[in-house]
Design a binder for these strands. Structure first.
Lengths: 238, 238
DNA sequence: TCGTTAGTGCGTAATTTTTACGCTAAGACC
DNA sequence: GGTCTTAGCGTAAAAATTACGCACTAACGA
């Protein structure tokens, strides 16, 4: 253990697991550095910058998206991270050694983000794209572990936070139910789920309907932001 | 916002909210720097050192205690922390300014620790001591907020983790009940609590009893570490 | 020795929460 | 018009939580 003050200085980054929901599947946004090198969006924290602001800046810098729901879930240390660096396959490469030396004492603060899938469209240059969770390749650093932990945190939070940020602004109850079923990996009774959501009292039933579907058109709903915020507060307290 | 790389370097510390339980009250260990200056135990993370190891090292360095139950609960950024620094009462003091400059970009990883109150005896020089939660003075940095958040995290964890680390090795069921009642701030029925604990199946009933109490002496129990570990695992998963 | 009082451990009733599901009406599509 | 799904009601069954009675034990204090 090296106790010189200079060596205790750490590079601190914010790493974001951005979840999207599409076609009844939960997806994660990945950055592509090369054909083999993928990672989560990440970045440094500026001087005076609150950590949460850094997380939201990182996401808007990479994808342009604003105002995402962000939740800090864990902070990761150095040990587990000194592996899976660029230039992998050749542990002795100078690039890898330099990278390790520079990054060895990194600390990463993990956030998960919930966004409307439609709002984030993979860019033309293909530097980032959505990936279904089962298909996620081996990522740089310990980003695979981070996604795993983010998912655990999301599931836990879903038990006492009403989460609607993964849906478009207007959505049907069925879509919301599918979202819950996918994240929690279980089925709900349509009628009970409907009652549960109504009891939360933060949904606004719109006069519009989703047309073009088979059979009867379902109503569209949207979040009453004000009531939603208080529901979030109440959900957290006991 | 200053984007020069040199300014993005952060000092990373581990700050520990160490809980103890005594006389039916939850207490927190505070460090005394002067009559007015108190803080939580904290320290830097060494090179290559896992964060959790740093937390446990910080606690053993300050109090000598080993093998404590540690749980990371939140990471704190710079903004909320640029206040309540030594030399307070005089915002213009050179000491304060120097301190702020040096520490402005600090990141603190918060852990809470659960320890047997008896194992940590305030030292002769009085550099640290236990303090009941309602009596906690204004602390340095944002340590008051950290205690608040640690308590919220502890309460949340108590709902799905069986926590016994705040008690001495041998304890009575009544003591365990008091612990739960204090942390969750509610009462339990003696018989129901007994049934609940027994259903967990990680307690060993000892032949000994706690003598010297009024009336019938209660049995002593201790944790079956092996079963306790599996209970912790199961408690976390869904 | 004996009354008092709390620990131990059983059972069970009362209550609340969760889950399952029947039923009717409406409405968009074919 | 027939079909299928949404929407919303009600309610029954099941499970979990909470309340509590009772018999027995055993240490303490008088």
């Amino acid at each position: 253990m090296d106790e010189q003050p200079g060596n205790m200085i750490k590079e601190v980054s914010v790493d974001c697991v951005m979840f999207g929901f599409h076609a009844d599947e939960l997806k994660v946004l990945l950055l592509k550095w090369s054909d083999q090198d993928w990672s989560l969006p990440r970045g440094r924290i500026f001087r005076y910058e609150p950590i949460a602001d850094a997380a939201s800046r990182v996401l808007s810098e990479t994808t342009g998206i604003q105002d995402v729901f962000l939740q800090q879930f864990h902070t990761f240390g150095a040990t587990a991270r000194v592996r899976n660096l660029p230039g992998h396959g050749n542990n002795e490469s100078p690039e890898r050694l330099a990278y390790e030396l520079f990054h060895e004492s990194i600390v990463s603060i993990g956030y998960y983000a919930l966004v409307d899938f439609e709002k984030v469209v993979p860019n033309v240059t293909g530097t980032y794209q959505w990936c279904e969770i089962p298909a996620i390749p081996e990522l740089l650093l310990d980003h695979n572990d981070m996604i795993e932990l983010a998912l655990v945190a999301l599931r836990k939070d879903l038990r006492y936070l009403p989460i609607a940020n993964l849906l478009p602004q207007k959505f049907t109850l069925r879509e919301m139910q599918k979202l819950y079923e996918t994240i929690l990996n279980r089925k709900f009774d349509r009628r009970n789920f409907h009652k549960l959501l109504m009891s939360y009292d933060f949904l606004i039933k719109l006069p519009e309907k989703r047309l073009g579907t088979a059979n009867k058109s379902p109503h569209l709903y949207q979040i009453d932001s004000e009531k939603y915020e208080t529901a979030l507060q109440d959900g957290i307290s006991y």
